[in-house]
Design a protein around this nucleic acid. Sequence first.
DNA 1: TTTTAAAACTAATATTGTTAGTTTTATTTT
DNA 2: AAAATAAAACTAACAATATTAGTTTTAAAA
Lengths: 190, 190
Amino acid sequence: MSPRPKIGLDLFTILDTAGEIADQQGVQEVTLAQLAKRLGIRPPSLYNHFDGLPGLRRKLAIHGLDRLYKGMSEATIRVSGTDAVLAMSHAYVSFAREHPGIYEATLLAPDPEDEDVQQAGARIVDLTVRVLQAFHLEGDRALHAVRGLRSILHGFAVLEQKGGFRMSLDLDESLTFVIRAFLTGIGDNP
Amino acid sequence: MSPRPKIGLDLFTILDTAGEIADQQGVQEVTLAQLAKRLGIRPPSLYNHFDGLPGLRRKLAIHGLDRLYKGMSEATIRVSGTDAVLAMSHAYVSFAREHPGIYEATLLAPDPEDEDVQQAGARIVDLTVRVLQAFHLEGDRALHAVRGLRSILHGFAVLEQKGGFRMSLDLDESLTFVIRAFLTGIGDNP
DNA sequence: TTTTAAAACTAATATTGTTAGTTTTATTTT
DNA sequence: AAAATAAAACTAACAATATTAGTTTTAAAA
């Protein structure tokens, strides 16, 4: 009934290879030509697996969000309160460090409104909501805080990656300081 | 002695046009072909004004940083303390809202280590340092705080721009909340 | 064994960036 | 005013990319 793919390539292999290119050569080098060359096929053959370059970017964004979520999620087990936020935050920037290209691809989807992309992102938002619940924020303040934490994490990851932080000052210490300050300012700390 | 440009185009006009394309159609649409078409010349002619697409991106980044600095700087005159940080922050995200393409180009320089790019960025960092001096942070804490504020601003601007904030919750209120929380957490508030 | 459909292929086209070399023309110099 | 200079445009040509159309191969399903 539902015919399965031929021997050849499966989507996971393709996305993994695309992720390698992104991390090693930069996300702008993830072209159909480069990807096909690494996979040992011709560029048009890739259209059997996704809908052109926009389709690849879309799938790569989802793939990246899933992997980022996994890292954040695992970091928060068996911790709570401030420690949980700190652990999640360091997992976030660690992922961006280890996979700069995949992380960048995370926000490179052609249509950010796409349902599957939204869903992959929503899991991360939900995790952030959960980890901030220990701070007992009421009403809109909870939503403001989630936006704040996400802003810090994304901004920090990008600025670190793009060489925005020039001072010779430990990056992890900076992140810890910033997160602690933000949580302190939110109040009602556990 | 120093021969001036012909009648034709000067760099300011070119960068302005490039900025228009970036804001209206997205930064990825800033191609030599598109730019040349808008200017009424042929693509190769652009090489008389900058060194290919990387050169254009470099100049556009500097141009954007200068304009961003101008907005931030003007917002901080005749205010101080928390008010100054808030004013500067809202000026920052306002610029990103009004000029999404130019703002994005700000971090798209081919070589972030480039001296002129660094210098344009350094003015913004210096302004941030100055505006945080009212909080009397000692030693490394001052540097951590600068990194934190920049992370918040960039992260907030990008997530807002890329549709990362889905809740129907006022964006400016979120920014105010986040900045206030961060400043409170830093302590010694004026 | 036959049928089917995925997954590869070849061939061709449009767009873009880029280089090389040429021409035009405003400005400077004589 | 005439000549020289150099910026700034041009044409022509090429390489790389994404993409479409149509074809062939081949593993899986019937």
